[in-house]
């Protein structure tokens, strides 16, 4: 028997929903956003914000189930996101690659992307980052563990590229500060 991957245990720990239902619900939501905002750029922004709001809650769910310890460096963080985070919430894993010289920037290449089944971008939505919600989720979750990051799509198969690649950039570690002033 092959040794269990770290993400598998976490995946087994969480409730599952039908993948098609999930994909179609997400699709319906993006569709509604396009109708409501009529502007592709604005929809990208909305998806990112929604993702952020998901991420700041998701982190606690993740920490409580994934059984991981504090990461000592950003490389480890990226690995945990790719192997455990993606597995736990999307059922897929990602590959970490393309590190820059000082290990603050990397790419997450998704091995599979369940959000885009049945999706084709029409002519009018070519600027849309359909899965932009994922960027927000990662950004929000990392912010809750003291890392300010920037997450962008680098390659998107819906836009004609050959893979789904997220570019993850660490801006800074936010140090924990004493939140009260002395005089209040």
């Amino acid at each position: 028997m092959a040794p269990a991957k770290p993400g598998d245990a976490a995946f087994a720990n969480v409730d599952h929903v039908n993948a098609e239902l999930f994909t179609l619900t997400y699709g319906a939501m993006v569709r509604q956003l396009l109708t409501d905002f009529e502007d592709v750029e604005e929809v990208n922004k909305q998806l990112d914000t929604m993702g952020y709001n998901i991420g700041i809650r998701l982190i606690d769910d993740f920490l409580s189930k994934a059984n991981v310890t504090r990461c000592s460096e950003f490389r480890e963080t990226a690995d945990v996101i790719a192997k455990i985070g993606f597995k736990m919430f999307l059922g897929v894993t990602a590959t970490v690659s393309n590190w820059n010289a000082d290990f603050t920037e990397c790419s997450l290449v998704l091995d599979d992307n369940p959000l885009v089944d049945f999706v084709e971008l029409p002519e009018t939505c070519q600027g849309l980052y359909y899965c932009n919600v994922l960027c927000g989720v990662i950004r929000g979750a990392l912010e809750m563990v003291s890392m300010r990051t920037e997450v962008k799509w680098a390659r998107d198969m819906l836009r004609g590229d050959d893979a789904y690649e997220l570019r993850l950039k660490l801006i800074e570690h936010v140090a924990e500060e004493y939140p009260y002033k002395d005089d209040d």
């Binding site: 982190i59 606690d60 920490l63 409580s64 504090r70 809750m144 563990v145 924990e176």
Partner: peptide, 10 residues
């Protein structure tokens, strides 16, 4: 007093 802190600061 029992204390626990998570990575998310809770």
């Amino acid at each position: 007093l029992h204390f626990m802190e998570t990575a998310s600061g809770i």
